[in-house]
Measured scan of single mutants.
Amino acid sequence: MATGGRRGAAAAPLLVAVAALLLGAAGHLYPGEVCPGMDIRNNLTRLHELENCSVIEGHLQILLMFKTRPEDFRDLSFPKLIMITDYLLLFRVYGLESLKDLFPNLTVIRGSRLFFNYALVIFEMVHLKELGLYNLMNITRGSVRIEKNNELCYLATIDWSRILDSVEDNYIVLNKDDNEECGDICPGTAKGKTNCPATVINGQFVERCWTHSHCQKVCPTICKSHGCTAEGLCCHSECLGNCSQPDDPTKCVACRNFYLDGRCVETCPPPYYHFQDWRCVNFSFCQDLHHKCKNSRRQGCHQYVIHNNKCIPECPSGYTMNSSNLLCTPCLGPCPKVCHLLEGEKTIDSVTSAQELRGCTVINGSLIINIRGGNNLAAELEANLGLIEEISGYLKIRRSYALVSLSFFRKLRLIRGETLEIGNYSFYALDNQNLRQLWDWSKHNLTITQGKLFFHYNPKLCLSEIHKMEEVSGTKGRQERNDIALKTNGDQASCENELLKFSYIRTSFDKI
Results as ranks from 00 to 15, higher is better:
74 R>P: 00
207 E>W: 14
140 T>P: 05
112 S>G: 11
137 M>S: 10
131 L>I: 14
316 P>K: 04
177 D>W: 05
91 F>L: 07
225 S>D: 04
212 H>L: 12
107 T>G: 05
80 K>L: 10
200 V>P: 13
309 N>P: 03
63 L>G: 06
299 Q>A: 06
37 G>R: 05
313 P>Y: 04
35 C>N: 00
55 V>A: 04
144 V>L: 07
296 S>T: 11
71 E>H: 02
291 H>T: 01
223 C>Y: 03
328 C>V: 03
295 N>V: 01
76 L>E: 01
224 K>Y: 07
62 I>W: 02
326 L>E: 05
328 C>R: 01
60 L>V: 08
186 C>L: 03
250 T>Y: 08
214 H>F: 12
105 N>D: 13
85 T>E: 06
118 Y>W: 14
104 P>I: 01
81 L>V: 03
84 I>S: 00
255 C>G: 00
150 N>H: 06
202 N>E: 07
299 Q>V: 02
32 G>T: 02
224 K>D: 13
328 C>Y: 02
144 V>K: 00
134 Y>D: 11
222 I>L: 09
316 P>F: 05
255 C>P: 00
161 S>G: 10
70 P>N: 02
227 G>T: 04
246 P>S: 03
65 M>A: 08
320 T>W: 10
300 G>T: 12
306 I>N: 01
263 R>A: 02
136 L>K: 00
67 K>Q: 01
308 N>H: 13
259 Y>P: 01
202 N>D: 10
198 A>V: 05
178 D>R: 09
179 N>F: 12
121 V>K: 00
320 T>Y: 05
314 E>Y: 13
37 G>I: 05
282 N>Q: 10
305 V>P: 03
228 C>T: 01
260 L>M: 02
145 R>M: 09
217 K>I: 15
131 L>W: 01
83 M>R: 00
139 I>H: 00
65 M>H: 13
72 D>E: 02
192 G>P: 07
101 D>N: 08
237 S>D: 13
85 T>C: 06
68 T>Y: 15
228 C>E: 01
134 Y>P: 12
97 E>P: 06
165 D>V: 13
324 S>G: 11
257 N>R: 05
140 T>R: 09
289 L>M: 11
297 R>D: 14
270 P>F: 06
161 S>C: 12
248 D>I: 02
269 P>N: 01
177 D>V: 06
264 C>H: 00
264 C>P: 00
276 Q>Y: 09
268 C>P: 00
199 T>D: 12
176 K>R: 09
322 N>W: 06
317 S>H: 15
125 M>V: 01
218 V>S: 07
125 M>Y: 00
218 V>G: 09
276 Q>G: 07
119 A>V: 02
262 G>F: 09
214 H>A: 02
238 E>I: 02
331 C>K: 04
287 Q>K: 09
296 S>Q: 13
176 K>P: 14
116 F>G: 08
275 F>E: 02
329 T>W: 12
316 P>S: 06
213 S>V: 06
283 F>Y: 10
243 C>K: 00
177 D>L: 08
291 H>C: 02
161 S>Q: 15
281 V>W: 00
201 I>Q: 14
146 I>L: 11
65 M>G: 04
168 E>D: 04
305 V>C: 13
156 A>V: 09
205 F>H: 07
85 T>R: 08
249 P>H: 03
86 D>W: 02
234 C>Y: 11
108 V>K: 01
135 N>E: 02
